[in-house]
Amino acid sequence: MDAGLIVYALYLAAIYGLMAIGISLLWSSVGMVNMAHGATFAFAGYAAYFAAIWAGPLAKDWLGATGWSQPALAVFIGLVAICAGALFGVVIYLVAYLTIHDKQNFPVRSLIITLALNLATVQMLLWAFGPQQKALPRVFGVGRFDWLGMSIRVDQVVTIVATTLLLGTVLVWLRHSRRGLEIRAVMQNAEGAALCGISSRKTALPIMMLTGALAGLAAVLLSQNVFVSPTAGVTPLIKGLTIALLGGLGSVPGAVAGAVLIGFIEAATGAIPFLGQRYVLFVQFTFIVCVLLIRPRGLGGLLDETRE
């Protein structure tokens, strides 16, 4: 195994982690499985694509001489995708949460609604933009550099660093801010939270926007490797879901651990000659099935127990 592979694995882990943590966080705080996460991903991907088309020439005009045009464009596209993801989060909040959150059977019904939203968004994107794949400009750097004698791709390193920083910030914020406290309070006892003046409806909105934004970020980062298309969200959604499961739904550390594991497995499977890319999903699912058979609550359960 060379360093390129390790970096590639970490790169995948970063993106899947963004998706899985979003799903896990939403499940633990709001109590819904967000099947529309893939739609958020695709939607944000398209938003980033159009932002790149619009802002690309502008950036070249204004900043082309200084050499800052690429980083500026990257930041801009990233921001647009994050905003688009958050916006989609608001839509999910309005449709699937606000209307039925205190009604009967909420978990199943919200799952159905988000699933329907996912299907509808994919179809609408297909309708509006056609099935062609769109390529985002390579704004996160191109080429490779040598480190300790091994060549490493720049964009992957940028992705890993950006994700780690952002996720770290978010997790620290959740741990220490008033909002984070509010989210955990609602999660543990909704009525008690109401008696403290915390409205579960007002708490759910930022968390939905946050998870949407994470999916948007994942969309931009992954679009460096994979093209933007209406169905682009399906694979990340399934991977995110399974990683969230592997980590134990609702456990953020579990999701991180699961993402790293799955990233390594995917990188390794791709590299082993007789398995190859086609078997990636197969190997992953088999691995997850095995883990879940041994630990029905996922890795998160393991972490919980060791902490006790």
Binding site: L241, T242, L245, L249, F285, I288, V289, L292, P296, G298
Partner: peptide
Amino acid sequence: YYALLTLG
């Protein structure tokens, strides 16, 4: 867990 697993 079982539902999402069987998806795979």
